[in-house]
Design a protein around this nucleic acid. Structure first.
Lengths: 228, 228
DNA sequence: GAGACTTTGAGAACAATTGCACAAGCGCGG
DNA sequence: CCGCGCTTGTGCAATTGTTCTCAAAGTCTC
């Protein structure tokens, strides 16, 4: 029962990468992969792959590599992807709309089963084969569908209240796309994606590449500035 | 000239958080903030704020705190946000469409100035006040608008080719939303956002919370499982 | 079945990041 | 102008993450 092991956060964040790489490999009817090959497909280095996988257990065979199907099964079990997770999206603006239509979720273990918005004008409209529910219906929707994961795609101002309502409704994992800090009780997991922040990080390194236009000091542009 | 300092990656990734928090603070006509207060607004702890800001220079005043306007200026200079960056989006599907309409970019230093798609049926269609250009026009578009930053919002299969074309066209910073590993020459910055991966990470921790349904070993649900 | 070759798994060194603790510096009130 | 209270900036220790290295364990060939 290897799931009792404590798996470092950094490793957890990479497991989905391996999962994705293994899915591609499996499509090509390849029986086994070496850590080297898997590393190439996942965009990390081989030593890291081996260390990461060793946290799950000794699933490789020395001299051979890892059995693709078996490893795929182990990782999907570890990630909890042996069954689909129902997900609710709150906030059906531009982004929420796009997320609702995004095909990538279904393919990788998540099914959007409910859409919620505070705007009465949006309630009842259909997107794909779902119709938008009112924010007040959240507790019922969450309970009915057995939802544990919620996505916040509202404007920043509404994020904290929506988070609170999600938690009250029984959601224990939240993915926040709103550009705002939200806090949740312990026991609830929270991850955030801020699109503008990603660009700002790029901007930081970009700015350092270009020798400053008004620059008095000739800063050497760095050769291999790679951002994690 | 503090920009000569080497700023740790982890710090760079938090600067936009402080920037956002300071913008909010400035709106409320507050003259100074303490590291404690800023930490609260940014969702990190105070010691980290102080250490991060100390990499930029000694911009605080002991006993008082940081001057909001001044710090805002310093951070925006460091992040290269003193001017707007023109950005091109490649791939005008669901996500590309939503990103093109997303208001959050303009407000924070980025302006979408061009949209590109490989599908001839999409070329020429208008989104907001932009019209979609052909993929082959990329070099011209990038040169004309002085674009340094590109966003990939294509399906996974097209990501690497689009990245290559962006680099050829002269783009040196890329934000990749496609669920695929892309590689770029050194000197080009790359960041990635994979929506499904974020959910999979949540799923990992979520799964460990629920005592396994088929579980033979009664794993104690952890009290304060917080994901970074 | 022995030897050559390959690849894992893990220990150890190394690097980055975090958080604590506190001296040093600043403003204010008396 | 002095002392007090507040807050920064930073040295240091602890933690977390990454990379190197190599023995161990397997396959394959002959």
């Amino acid at each position: 029962m290897p799931s009792a092991r404590r798996i470092p956060e950094a490793t957890v964040a990479r497991l989905p990468l391996y999962y994705r790489a293994l899915l591609e490999t499996a499509d090509q009817h390849v029986g086994t992969v070496s850590s080297e090959r898997l590393a190439g497909l996942a965009g990390v280095n081989a030593a890291k792959v081996r260390k990461d996988l060793s946290y799950l257990g000794s699933y490789g065979t020395r001299g051979v590599g890892y059995d693709v199907e078996f490893l795929l099964h182990q990782i999907s079990r570890e990630l909890g992807l042996t069954h689909d997770w129902p997900v609710v999206i709150v906030g059906i603006g531009n982004l929420g709309h796009a997320l609702a239509n995004y095909r990538g979720f279904g393919a990788r273990g998540f099914q959007i089963v409910a859409l919620v918005d505070a705007d009465p004008a949006k309630v009842g409209t259909r997107i794909g084969d779902l119709s938008v529910d009112a924010l007040d219906d959240l507790p019922r929707v969450v309970a009915d569908c057995g939802i544990a994961i919620g996505i916040i795609a509202t404007p920043a101002g509404a994020a904290q209240e929506v988070a609170d309502r999600l938690v009250d409704a029984g959601v224990t994992s939240i993915l926040n796309f709103a550009p705002a800090v939200v806090s949740v009780p312990s026991g609830v997991s929270l991850r955030k994606v801020d699109l503008a922040i990603e660009l700002q990080i790029l901007s930081f390194y970009q700015q350092r590449k270009v020798p400053a236009v008004d620059g008095q000091h000739g800063e050497t542009p760095r050769a291999a500035e790679r951002v994690r």
